[in-house]
């Protein structure tokens, strides 16, 4: 696979002097789903807006399939579809007309069959003659996706596609994205829902304060930063942690019936074998045990806090 989007040292300083992007360099592979993960104000939307031509970059370059976004903006933008964070739709316009309009301003000839295909894919065909204001929130969001897809882009930007969306709709949105990926569309989505990145993305780019902190395969990131928790349930309650176990930094639950041990999956020695031996030596009888992997959310919080401490 080759990079369809190449971002080099992209900077954006707003008029007020705020530096929203501090030299972002990033390659996005054709056909992948990349999640831009970061807290509010991290620069996610600024990055997307800059790539799509809504915001002028202060310096740096970016190319889409080799076309420079500034000097060859016509070629570059034809390949891009953007689904904005806000529901930006003209309330009195009709669903189908909206898609024809989007296709038109991207320079594509009118194609009723193509628009029908997009509308059907998004389950909007029945609503094609409705006015936008008559639709539910979820449908409006799908109209936005439909508009972005109407000109058959190769790269699709989804800015917070599920912000303020209920659980069933969020699932529905994930299915739409998965379907698009199957068709070979490269997708860049921003989110601060970690589970969204975890569920959908091939790679995750963590962005904070206008900088990309890291880009990694979702699984690798989980493994690399993932800490596991081993919870041991005991037959008999303990009043306090026995002396032989002190070196393991265990946490005793309030009822004294379970012990929690945290360890790093990437470490050479997890310490689990030693811990088990120590249990039997101390005569503690185990009733059950289970492990759990920290979610991407916890990983992310750990990462951001760690960075904060380092500064």
């Amino acid at each position: 696979m080759s990079a369809i989007l190449e971002i080099r040292d992209l900077r954006k300083v707003y008029d007020g002097g705020f530096e929203a992007l501090k030299g972002v360099t990033l390659d996005i592979e054709e056909g992948e789903i990349l999640a831009l993960l970061g807290p509010n104000g991290a620069g996610k939307t600024t990055l997307i807006s800059t790539l799509c031509g809504i915001t002028e970059p202060t310096s740096g370059t970016a190319t889409v399939a080799g076309y420079d976004i500034k000097t060859q903006y016509r070629e570059a933008r034809k390949l891009i579809g953007l689904v904005p964070q806000e529901i930006n739709l003209e309330p009195f316009s009709y669903v189908e007309t909206n898609l024809h309009f989007s296709r038109g301003i991207f320079g594509k000839p009118r194609d009723t069959a193509k628009v029908e295909e997009v509308l059907r894919k998004l389950a909007l065909w029945e609503k094609r003659s409705n006015r936008v204001r008559e639709l539910s929130g979820g449908m409006k969001r799908r109209v936005l996706i439909g508009k972005a897809l109407a000109h058959e882009p190769r790269v699709l930007f989804l800015d917070e596609p599920t912000a303020g969306v209920d659980v069933s709709l969020r699932k529905e949105m994930w299915d739409v994205v998965a379907e698009l990926k199957k068709q070979g569309v490269t997708i860049i989505l921003t989110t601060h829902y970690i589970e969204e990145a975890e569920a959908m993305a091939d790679r995750v780019a963590v962005i904070r304060g206008g900088e990309i902190l890291m880009v990694e395969k979702t699984g690798d990131l989980m493994r690399r930063l993932g800490r596991k928790e081993l919870t041991v349930e005991l037959r008999e309650p303990l009043a306090e942690i026995p002396a032989p176990l002190a070196e393991y930094d265990l946490e005793l639950s309030a009822d004294g019936l379970s012990l929690t041990y945290r360890y790093d999956t990437q470490a050479d020695r997890t310490g689990i074998a030693g811990l088990m031996r120590a249990f039997s030596e101390a005569g503690i009888i185990l009733r059950d045990l289970h492990t759990s992997q920290s979610s991407l959310e916890e990983i992310f919080v750990g990462l951001v806090e760690g960075e904060g401490e380092a500064q």
């Binding site: 799509c52 903006y73 070629e75 570059a76 953007l82 930006n88 003209e90 309330p91 301003i105 991207f106």
Partner: peptide, 17 residues
Amino acid sequence: YFPKFTGTVFELLSAPI
């Protein structure tokens, strides 16, 4: 003004025009 007001102006700005 209306596209600015409704926010649909983003599409004009991101289109190859």
